[in-house]
Design a binder for these strands. Sequence first.
DNA 1: TTCTTGACTTGGACGAAGTCCATCGTAGGA
DNA 2: TCCTACGATGGACTTCGTCCAAGTCAAGAA
Lengths: 136, 136
Amino acid sequence: MSDLLGRLRGRGWRMTSQRRVVAEVLDGDHVHLTADEVHLRAAARLPEISRATVYNTLGELVALGEVLEVSTVGRAKRYDPNARNPHQHLVCSGCGTVRDVHPVGNAIGDLPEEERFGFAVGSVEMTYRGLCPACA
Amino acid sequence: MSDLLGRLRGRGWRMTSQRRVVAEVLDGDHVHLTADEVHLRAAARLPEISRATVYNTLGELVALGEVLEVSTVGRAKRYDPNARNPHQHLVCSGCGTVRDVHPVGNAIGDLPEEERFGFAVGSVEMTYRGLCPACA
DNA sequence: TTCTTGACTTGGACGAAGTCCATCGTAGGA
DNA sequence: TCCTACGATGGACTTCGTCCAAGTCAAGAA
């Protein structure tokens, strides 16, 4: 995420204070905020920012491939800024904490030809579930 | 799913026409309906059935372990009656079609100890994505 | 068979998450 | 500095799901 703002400017993104704040909120590892949480944190720095703007900006970041949508925890979508580093997710069944993890092996290769139904398989998303040390 | 009704009766479930119709709608392989679709199909056979009853019944079937919730496609949850046969999902990025698939290998074993953050990992859900023959 | 009762169903209100749109504001080039 | 097209705003709206009070009925008892 570090030079996200630079990359976005390079792509011709018009830089506004709202977009800057949203991008800054989405920084760090193991960050998986809901749109509402992003709005809350952004509003702490820029009180007038509207919900619609947060949704618009998140949608654009996803379209640009800078942020991933994760829908494995709870009802609301979560936004993962760690898009440039391929990874999977480990979720605590107790408290909902999410960690980025990196399994070894080739999960796509593990799907036999006769189980592909003629699909051109391009990716696989994995969600590991279990109890974190605090909840166990 | 075949003898679902018998199993439910065995567990002391009170059998009503509404529950019977919902269970019958959720029958077959590669079935992944939304609650709304279940309601639509159930109402074709039993016009007075209410949305709340469909949600209640689906929730109970999930609690009993007879049906799985799948949240990998679109906004609404989908209900998968194939709960007694462990499997993963293959989703078409074009039309949203979902197939049940059975990868080989041990995905849980593929998560290294140092990537587990002390979690007791119990299960893994995998979603393969690609284009189906019709969409390719 | 009829009675009884508690579990089940109903529909409408409610709530959370997300989208849409007309209008206003402003970043950044001329 | 001025213009203007792109972005922000906020309120209405949609979708998906939950809750609740009141009415209904499956299934065991007599």
